[in-house]
Design a binder for these strands. Structure first.
Length: 327
RNA sequence: GGGGGUAUAGUGAAACGGCAUCAUGACGCUCUCCAAAAGCGUUGUUCUAGGUUCAAAUCCUAGUGCCCCCG
């Protein structure tokens, strides 16, 4: 990551002291977050920070339904005749944290948080409003609530070693390293146990999780009524096939992304692989995409429902945003 | 028309005549960096009618549905 001039750090520190305002826009897949985010950004002089655990990866354009490049460069409107270049650039809506990680690398929330914070600093430095948009609940929360995740990168070898142990053994290991964490960890979840051991081994113990937002965040939640979301999800699936999800999956494979890795990028790629392997027909591919998207949307909503700060909206809430930014 | 096979949860499967299980879905929930992940809980099944047996998903008979072969 490029080092920032110190002035940016000062800006962020000031921002923390003065409770910088940010907008967080969340919602399930296909709810129309991206479009709305661009509208908000245009209306209120903002820049967009994506909080999506898959749109960060290069080459996953179709399967992750990343916003089209034109929005990242020029907002949603092409330049009109007679429009000056300056006016044109002014309408540009920059998007951050998109399309920058090699698909072969495993990118973690912690890395995302650093990069996104860096983007927030820059946006604030330009006197603009950061708009965090995403469907990955954990990623949005980590950023907005400034969750103090321990700086311990994943240790592949340790994880592999521990993966053969059962949960009682794992719990015993953790108990020796950090009895406190052993008491409140989910003792039936191997992944959590292994992660706790990983952190405890590196730091001596698992630090307490701090969750204190340095920002004043306006939480907006977009959740269309079921029939509309259903229709949007069907459109999304149809377009995904039309735009060439299969071609994209094949391309990733030829680029050297292993099949196992491709499957980690979500049900879209798992379904595409099954089609490539001729396990399913094109109609079945469509049906699978629709079904799995609906399921995923439900799971996303389960996460969001727990956050009482979210204002659930149906369209651009111009007045509330104005009030929020002016108080 | 004749012969053979098969029938178990919404779906896919397991169960020597002895407590009907497993996976998946649905529903609800949890979350200290794999989060489109991982985990927890709830729900729900022996095609129908007889028979044999202390006891039947399992054995027998008939019916029904589905699959295969012959005509």
């Amino acid at each position: 990551m490029k080092k920032l001039p110190t002035s940016y750090h000062n800006i962020l520190n000031n921002a923390r002291a003065h409770q910088t305002k940010i907008i967080a826009l969340i919602g399930p897949t296909a709810s129309g977050k991206s479009e709305l985010a661009v509208q908000i950004a245009k209306e209120f002089n903002g820049e967009i920070i994506s909080a999506d655990s898959r749109q960060i990866y290069r080459g996953l354009d179709i399967g992750s339904t990343r916003v089209p490049g034109k929005w990242q460069r020029v907002g949603s409107d092409p330049p009109k005749e007679g429009q000056t270049l300056q006016r044109f650039i002014y309408k540009t809506i920059p998007h951050h944290c998109l399309d920058f990680v090699s698909p072969e690398k495993t990118y973690t929330v912690a890395e995302f948080k650093k990069r996104a914070e860096c983007a927030i600093k820059k946006i604030i430095g330009r006197g603009k409003t950061p708009i965090i948009v995403g469907g990955t609940g954990l990623w949005v929360d980590t950023l907005v609530y400034d969750m103090s995740l321990p700086e311990v990168p994943p240790n592949k070898r340790l994880r592999k070693n521990l993966s053969s142990k059962n949960m009682l053994e794992l719990l015993a290991i953790l108990k020796k390293l950090d009895p406190n964490r052993a008491r409140n960890v989910d003792a039936q979840n191997p992944r959590r146990l292994i992660r706790a051991i990983e952190v405890a081994r590196a730091l001596g113990k698992v630090p307490l999780l701090k969750k204190q937002s340095p920002y004043r965040a306006l939480w907006l939640g977009l959740n269309p009524p079921p029939n509309i979301l259903d229709k949007r999800i069907r459109d999304r699936a149809r377009k995904m096939i039309q735009k060439g999800i299969i071609k994209e999956a094949k391309k990733l494979l030829t680029q050297g992304v292993p099949r196992s890795r491709l499957q980690e990028f979500g049900f879209e790629y798992r379904a595409a692989l099954d089609y490539i392997d001729q396990k399913i027909t094109k109609d079945e591919l469509y049906a699978r995409l629709v079904r799995d998207t609906l399921r995923y949307a439900k799971r996303q909503m389960r996460w969001f429902k727990r956050n009482p700060e979210i204002h659930w909206i149906t369209k651009l809430p111009v007045r509330s945003i104005k009030e929020f930014l002016n108080t």
